[in-house]
Amino acid sequence: MLTNWFAQPAGNRSSVDEGKIDNDDDTQVMEPDQGNVLSHIISQLRPGADLSRVVLPTFILEPRSMLERITNFMCHPEMLLHIPTIDDPTERFVSVVKFYLSGWHIRPPGVKKPLNPILGEIFSCYWDLEDNKRAYYISEQTSHHPPKSSYFYMAPHHHIRIDGTLKPRSRFLGNSAASLMEGIAFLSILNRGSNKAKGEQYILTQPNMYARGILFGKMKYELGDHSFVRCPELDLTADIDFKTKGWVGGTYNAIGGVIKRESTGEVLYELSGLWSEEMFIKDMRTGQREMFFDAHKAKPSPPLSRPISEQEERESQRLWEKTAKAVKERNHELATDEKTKIEDRQREEAALRAQENIEWVPRLFRAVRSGPGEPEEGEESLEWIINANMYV
């Protein structure tokens, strides 16, 4: 039962290397047979086509669900949990930006895509913190077409809460595949801010993800495009540019950006470096530049979860257990069979609901028309938040 979400850990699950991985963790050389299979699939598409309905070969799959992969974002609690104790508002905002940038270096080697969660799939986990307290995470696939993964993180003793919905859209771009990571996360510092119920809120978006060179040669993973961290109450915003490498010049994994006053445009800090290695921050008032985050020295704290034997049928690790095992063992035929079984069952369930005119309702989250903070232009006003009755 979900009342036992946060029991004893099941141990860490690790990703498996597929294909030939260069010394660069973001690069993968396709084996000839793998390249042929992938080229056959891609040859059926046109630039701009939606990849969400295309069955991709299992050798490019990460052996875990997207619901579980989202936890990469929370795997540096040492960057997050002290923030509510910071009295200076600008320093507090800068620390939120540092936490936001700290998780992108956590990724499997090569170019991997997580398993697409099925409707109603759930993943839960927790972190044992240094002060003998815990942080908790729960997520659910709240929509299948279009896909929406809703998640909730809470460190109750540290006054930290995160509510988010991730809405990835896949596109074929010729020699690249893109995952456009739409959606917003709201990070709330509950002991700060003028609104005692919601706390001081930060609005966060994500960069997009790209797989380059998918037709031949080396496949390369990149983050790209603009994302932001905003706190309207503090009148501060961070505009962060994840830079993709150009045809001529440039480098992989670079970022640039500024932290500024939203009302005046005054730039307070500049950000630079590589999200996979070292990032720097420059104080524009003093000209001082210093290390902001060093991924080489950072030690992520992976989440813990209950043993699979104690999980419900639709919890991610139990649901995808056979598929994930086959992917890790590089048994791609078995992985495809097990994955297809789950996807076929989902289609059958959807057909039955349509036949009986039954509307599917999420178990842990509820839809709201106005989330905490106003959405940007082009963003949906409909978000999903944790159902308070399920959390109590």
Results as ranks from 00 to 15, higher is better:
residue 341 K to N: 12
residue 319 L to K: 06
residue 356 E to F: 11
residue 122 I to D: 01
residue 193 G to M: 14
residue 363 R to E: 12
residue 359 E to S: 13
residue 162 I to G: 04
residue 300 P to Q: 08
residue 61 L to H: 15
residue 78 E to N: 03
residue 338 E to I: 01
residue 20 K to R: 12
residue 41 I to C: 04
residue 15 S to T: 06
residue 370 S to F: 13
residue 299 K to W: 03
residue 287 G to M: 02
residue 63 P to K: 01
residue 191 N to A: 04
residue 344 D to E: 14
residue 362 P to H: 09
residue 371 G to H: 08
residue 247 W to N: 09
residue 146 P to N: 03
residue 138 I to D: 00
residue 11 G to H: 01
residue 316 S to C: 11
residue 228 F to K: 07
residue 173 L to M: 14
residue 105 H to E: 12
residue 383 E to M: 09
residue 321 E to W: 06
residue 231 C to T: 02
residue 75 C to L: 03
residue 27 T to G: 02
residue 89 P to H: 03
residue 305 S to T: 11
residue 167 K to G: 01
residue 328 K to T: 14
residue 162 I to M: 11
residue 362 P to I: 12
residue 313 E to S: 12
residue 376 E to Q: 13
residue 334 L to Y: 03
residue 378 G to F: 11
residue 54 V to N: 06
residue 342 I to M: 03
residue 317 Q to I: 05
residue 207 P to K: 05
residue 204 L to M: 15
residue 347 R to V: 09
residue 112 K to L: 09
residue 318 R to M: 11
residue 169 R to G: 00
residue 114 P to L: 03
residue 325 K to V: 05
residue 382 L to T: 14
residue 23 N to Y: 07
residue 55 V to E: 09
residue 33 D to W: 12
residue 193 G to T: 09
residue 22 D to G: 05
residue 228 F to Q: 11
residue 326 A to H: 08
residue 155 A to L: 04
residue 274 L to F: 14
residue 66 M to V: 01
residue 144 H to R: 10
residue 145 H to K: 15
residue 112 K to C: 07
residue 227 S to E: 15
residue 96 V to Y: 00
residue 39 S to Q: 06
residue 356 E to Y: 11
residue 167 K to V: 05
residue 218 K to Y: 11
residue 281 I to R: 09
residue 369 R to L: 05
residue 248 V to R: 13
residue 72 N to F: 11
residue 201 Q to P: 04
residue 11 G to C: 03
residue 77 P to T: 02
residue 251 T to P: 00
residue 23 N to P: 03
residue 148 K to I: 06
